[in-house]
Amino acid sequence: MMSVLLQSKNISKHYGGIKAVQNVDMQVEKGEIYGIIGPNGAGKTSFFNVCTGNLQPNGGEIWFDGKKITGMRPAQIATLGMARTFQNIQLFNFMTVLENIKIGFHIHEKTNIFDAIVHNKRYKTDEKMNHEKGVALLEKLGLSEHAETLAGNLAYGVQRRVEIARALALDPKILLLDEPAAGMNPIETQNLSDFIKQLRNDGYTIIVIEHDMKFVMNLCDRILVLNFGQKICEGNPEHVKNDKLVNEAYFGKGTTF
């Protein structure tokens, strides 16, 4: 029996009169790859941002690792072990890749401003830790050659990987990826898919929002389908593929053949 890591209970999010997310329940279990799909404007990103604390829900609760996290600020939620990437890559463009990764270690460092000025033991252990771990992480993800490049000068696909690497630096319990395959060619997408599976094998729990059907169907253990802010289906890829409501949402009702 697996344990539930992230749970949403009856989540609603309204923008004025528009109900972006309505009463969505979700349970993500430890060690799985969980997909969230839906047509444009289905409320995927709104729901995702409610989970990470970037948006406050109008109703419902989010529970993460046994704690209620609704109402907490994103930075607090991050310290509990939730890391995310963004739909439009948000790297620190004027900093090198290694520096980007080092900020990922922020919550594991204990240095304060006075430690930094006098270079005491706490500062030295922190700097040693984040340099060694940062270099090791880049090595592991095959990004070592870019360590000293400014993040803004990298190719798009590489930036995606750096963003994921930065999220991994938090040593998160759960990793939320917002459209990681957007703008990638089929080969890059395949590599990304393998990479995410590898992460799962390393023990991470992963939530993916994605448009690319083939990508999601091959990758995810379970999938949640949203349409007009409502959950219309949840289950394994086979189940979702054959669901009537899902097919209607994507292809329209029309006559049956």
Binding site: N54, A75, A78, A83, Q90, L91, G104, L170
Partner: peptide
């Protein structure tokens, strides 16, 4: 936003 998501 990215800084926040990293716990800053």
């Amino acid at each position: 936003h990215a800084a926040m998501s990293l716990g800053v």
